[in-house]
Design a protein around this nucleic acid. Structure first.
Lengths: 182, 182
DNA sequence: TCGAAGTGTTGTAAATACTGAACGCTGTTG
DNA sequence: CAACAGCGTTCAGTATTTACAACACTTCGA
C-alpha cells in the first residue's frame, strides 16, 4: 500500500490542508508534505499523531481500500433477497455475497418456537439489530433479554449468544453483522 | 497501544527469537530488541519489514487496538437510542458511540420533504439498509431509485449518494454503514 | 495592481531510528 | 570444566526522519 497516497486521499476527503492537518496533529506541515510524497517513511509515533488529527485509527488507515465492484446491483426488491435460512429461522441477505463486503445485513424472521440452537454462537466481529415485529428472546453470555418491538441490541460476537422465539407470534428482526462471514 | 509489547507477544506466540525474526524480516536483532523495549518508535517501513517476517499485515497488528472499550449494555429500548439527527432527518444510533466500533446501525425517519442535501454524500465504506415504512428516493451515482416497503439497498459509500423523501408520508429506514464515522 | 493569506515544496540542522559489533547470560555437549 | 550455540541487551556510528524557516505559487480583496 502507498502510505503517502492514502494519507493524501484521506486528508483531501476531509477537506483539510497540509498545514491545517499538521496543526491539529501537532506536527509540522513539512512532515505531512514529505509523508505524502513518500520521501520519508514516517515513524509509527508520528503517523499516529497525524492520524490523530483527522481523527482515524491505524486499523482504518491500513484497511484495504474497498475496490469498486462494477455492475453491482444497488436496490433489491423484497423477493430478490438471497435466502440463507438456517433451520426454522428465515434469513434474507441484502445484496450479493461478494467477497470484499464488510457488512452482512439481514432480514430475519423467527416463527414461534424458532431458535438458533442450544449451543451458543461465538465468532469474531460485531452484531447489532432492531426488532420490528413480535417479541424475541436474546441470550448473551449469562444474561437473558426480551426484545420488544423497537428494541435494539449491540454486542461483540465473541460473546456466546443465542436468539429464540418462545412466544406465539412471529418475530421479525433486522440485523447487521461484521465481518460478513457466511 | 503498546507497540513493543504487542510485537513481543506476537513473536513469542509464533515461537520466534529476536534473531530469528530479524533474519526473516531483513533487519537486525537489535532493531527488534529496541522496538520491543519501546526505546524507539519504528518507521512504517521497518515495522512492515518486521511484520513481513512473521508474516502479518499492519491491519492485523493494529487490530489489537480495537479492544479497550468494553460495552456492557447490550439491549437498548427505543428511547435509549442516541439521536444523531441531521436536519429534518431523524437518525438514531443503536449502541454507544465508542470509537472502535465497526458498524453504525441506524433507525432513520425521513418526514415528507426530508433530504440529505443536494450535495451528494461521499465517504469510505459500505452502506446498506431496508425500508420498513413509506417510500423513499435513493440516488446513487447517476441512477435514481424509488424504494418501497421491503426494498433494500447495498452500495459502496464512495459512490456519491443521496436520500430524499418527495412523498407525503414519512419513510422509515433501517440502515447499517461501515466504518462507523460520525 | 498590489499586498495579505492561503497553498505545497524544499534546504538545513536537530532529533530519532537503525546497523554492526560488542557484552553478559543460559543451557547443552563433549 | 571448557567450548559452544543460542538468547536478549547495549553502545557508537551511520542513516533516516522531523522541525524550523524559508521559497514560489495561487486566490482574494482593496
Amino acid at each position: 500500500m502507498d502510505v503517502g497516497e492514502r494519507l493524501q486521499a484521506i486528508r483531501k476527503l476531509k477537506g483539510l490542508s497540509q498545514r491545517e492537518l499538521a496543526k491539529r496533529a501537532g506536527v509540522t506541515n513539512s512532515t505531512i508534505s514529505m509523508i505524502e510524497k513518500n520521501s520519508v517513511s514516517p515513524s509509527i509515533s508520528s503517523l499516529r499523531k497525524v492520524l490523530g488529527g483527522i481523527p482515524m485509527s491505524m486499523v482504518e488507515f491500513f484497511s484495504e481500500e474497498l475496490q469498486p465492484e462494477n455492475t453491482t446491483q444497488i436496490v433489491y426488491k423484497a423477493n430478490e433477497l438471497i435466502d440463507i435460512s438456517d433451520g426454522a429461522v428465515t434469513m434474507k441477505l441484502v445484496g450479493k455475497a461478494h467477497p470484499s463486503r464488510a457488512i452482512a445485513f439481514l432480514n430475519e424472521i423467527y416463527p414461534p418456537g424458532a431458535d438458533t440452537g442450544e449451543e451458543m454462537l461465538t465468532h469474531e466481529g460485531e452484531e447489532t439489530g432492531i426488532l420490528v415485529e413480535g417479541r424475541l428472546e436474546l441470550v448473551v453470555g449469562l444474561e437473558t433479554f426480551v426484545l420488544e418491538v423497537g428494541d435494539s441490541y449491540y454486542f461483540e460476537s465473541t460473546k456466546p449468544h443465542r436468539f429464540r422465539n418462545p412466544y406465539d407470534v412471529p418475530a421479525r428482526l433486522i440485523s447487521a453483522a461484521t465481518p460478513a462471514n457466511f
